Computed example of a mutant assay.
Amino acid sequence: MPAPQPIGVFDSGYGGLTVLQSIVRKLPQYDYVYLGDNARTPYGTRSFDTVYHYTLECVQHLFRMGCRLVILACNTASAKALRNIQQLDLPTLAPERRVLGVIRPTTEVIGRFTASGHVGILATRGTVTSESYRVEIEKFFPALAVYQEACPMWVPLVENGEHLDPGADYFVRKHLKNLLDQSPDIDTLLLACTHYPLLLPKIREFAPDGMTILSQGEIVADSLADYLDRHPEMAEQCSKGGSRRFLTTDSPEDFSRQAGLFWNEPVAAERLNL
C-alpha cells in the first residue's frame, strides 16, 4: 500500500478555513493540505459548468499531491460539482479515492434542531439556485419546510474585513428580514456558506431571540470523524503528523494576510499555478 498522505481540503477562497479549523480541533492528529482557488473566486455567481470545471481541476491537483480523501469545504462546489465528480469522474479517474462535501452532513442532522419544522437557509446565490439543500433535506426530513435566502453581499463584506462594521448592519438585517418574511415559524437558521460564521455577532444581534443558528464546521468535523471510524481502510491512508499546509492560486502574501480573519494562527501560504 502507498504511504499515507494528507487529507485535502478545498474551497473557492478563504471560507473553508472555518471548516478546516473545526476539523483540526476534532481530528488534530491528521495532516491537512488546504487549497484555496482565490484567483477564480467567487464561485457563488458562476455557472454549474464553470464551478464543476474549476472544482475538478483543484481536486485533481490534490490527488496528484497524494491526497486520497478530499473535503469540498465550499457549499457552492458541493452543490454544483460534487455529484458529477463522485458519479462521473471518480470511477474512471481515481476509483480508490473519495471526495466528500459539506451539504450532506448538514442535511442529515438539521431536523434535530428545529421544534417548529421550519428552517431557513442563508447561502450564496449559486447554492440557493442549485436547490441542493431542499433536495437533500427532503431525503432525511421530508416533513420539514425549507426557506432560502441568497446573500450576495455577505462574502465581500467578510473578505474586505467589513463584516463587523456598522455598514454591514443593513445587509444582515435585509436578508434576515427577507428570509423570515417567508415564514414567521422559522426557528432554525443554517449558515450555508463557510464565510458566514464570521458574521455571527451581527446575525445574532438582528435575529429573533431564541433562534437556533447553525454553522457547518462542527457538523462537518463530526461527520468526518464518523466517516473515518466507519472506513478504517481510508483512515489508514491518511497520514498522522499534525501538519497543516496552505496553497492558493493567487497571491500567497494576500492569502496569508486575509487568512487571519478565519484562522487563529499565522498562515504561510504557497502559490499554486494550475
Rank of each mutant, 00 (worst) to 15 (best):
E136N: 09
V128E: 15
R134F: 07
S130F: 15
T127Y: 00
A150K: 13
A143D: 07
P142W: 12
E131C: 14
R134D: 02
P142A: 11
Q148K: 13
L164I: 00
Q148L: 06
H163E: 10
E159P: 01
P156D: 06
M153T: 05
E162H: 02
E149L: 11
T129R: 10
F141R: 06
V158W: 04
R134W: 03
I137M: 09
A143I: 00
A145S: 14
L144V: 05
P142K: 13
S130W: 14
T127L: 03
Y147I: 08
I137S: 04
V146H: 10
Y133W: 09
S132H: 13
H163D: 10
E136P: 09
P152A: 05
F141S: 01
E159G: 02
G126A: 09
W154G: 08
M153L: 15
Y133F: 15
A145T: 12
V135S: 09
K139E: 13
T127W: 01
E149M: 13
L157C: 05
S132D: 08
A150P: 14
L164D: 02
M153C: 04
R134P: 00
S130K: 06
S130P: 14
R134Y: 11
V128L: 13
P142S: 12
E159V: 00
E159R: 10
E162G: 00
G126C: 10
V146K: 10
E159A: 03
F140M: 00
K139R: 15
Y133P: 01
